[in-house]
Design a protein around this nucleic acid. Structure first.
Lengths: 193, 193
DNA sequence: CGGATCGTTGATCAACTTCAACGGTCGTGG
DNA sequence: CCACGACCGTTGAAGTTGATCAACGATCCG
């Protein structure tokens, strides 16, 4: 249960056995079934969630009722409505399990307490967030500068697991394109090859 | 020169006088004239830069030669090609002064050394990056779900300073729309009011 | 004064969306 | 265990948004 978390942390900083014991106490574990919700829009996102097994997505719904996937999270990823979690305001995102999941959760109070108890966790999260910013920046520029086809190609090149595990219409939603468009793009690519 | 930096840091964590002295030693200051470059695409981004005075932008150039603004940074903001800085690989972004600027710079080695010398800086950057992620996430979803007009309205509502200080065609570029489109949107809004 | 830069306007064009219909597959309940 | 419905991907046709191309006027600054 915690091995995934510890090994993920230790990719960035080193932990003593004592640290691990302390850290483990801050988290509670939870199992989710496919299609179960971890968070619904309008609730406050009470927990920062580490995915130790399975796959989830965050998405929001626009004025026309269309869903837009914000993030996919599987083993080794953190997931939340980050703004809601940090500011304790109502969430704009939903978090739903795409596969059966096992997750570890920490509340905001515990998250802050964790940093005081194990100060190296400040560094861990600092490094984690650094990398996250780079990824988000890249995705944003991709979204602005690339065509639908280019966005798709970039995604499958940078992350082949995504296409293997995730239904096509959710990938389309993640890329910000209509499912029909993605279908046509794939057809077109196969044809040209 | 450093007051802006210290007060910015102290919005998030508290510093002793000793900390301030130590921190100041890690930075070097630099002045820039309007249109001067802090970084050009292809170079390694050697410094993380804090803007103490003035205004800069990062942008990249797509295959067709079109510029796309990634970020604006003015007093109290950090600016860099973050990926290039962290991985010491060639930058994809350019950084250019829009106004005359005064900046404080720190190299990657010094950045890492700073965290060891003043561990609370790990927390400062962790919090800084937390907030940055929320902002980038919001901008990304805006870019995917909103029309050009909605993106513009959201921008001026959330950040009125931007429209006051920044030429319209750069705002268009930041929003990922053509300058002509932004011009028409403004006309349209004025007309409807 | 003259050139560069910036914003505006009009006309055309391309990419992608939307709407609608259909076929395949998967899972669940009878 | 089969049948039905839900879900998913595909295809076609039409519609819309915003991009592109081109020209022009205004302003700023050397």
């Amino acid at each position: 249960m915690f091995e995934m978390l510890f090994s993920h942390i230790q990719e960035k900083v080193s932990l003593t056995e004592g640290d691990k014991k302390t850290i483990a106490d801050f988290f509670t574990s939870k199992k989710l079934r496919k299609r179960q919700y971890l968070l619904q829009e309008g609730e406050v996102c009470k927990y920062l969630t580490f995915v130790s097994k399975g796959l989830l997505r965050t998405y929001n719904v626009d004025g026309k009722g269309t869903e837009h996937v914000n993030v996919f999270g599987w083993e080794g990823w953190w997931i939340s409505d980050f703004n809601s979690f940090l500011t304790e305001t109502p969430a704009v995102f939903n978090i739903e399990a795409i596969e059966n999941c096992e997750v570890l959760q920490i509340s905001l109070a515990e998250y802050n307490a964790l940093m005081l108890a194990v100060p190296i966790m400040d560094r861990y999260f600092r490094i984690l967030y650094q990398n996250s910013i780079v990824t988000k920046e890249r995705r944003l520029m991709s979204s602005i500068t690339h065509t639908a086809e280019e966005k798709y190609l970039e995604l499958i090149e940078s992350n082949s697991e995504i296409t293997a595990r995730i239904p096509q219409h959710l990938i389309a939603s993640y890329l910000g394109i209509a499912p029909e468009t993605l279908s046509r793009i794939k057809k077109n690519l196969a044809f040209r090859k």
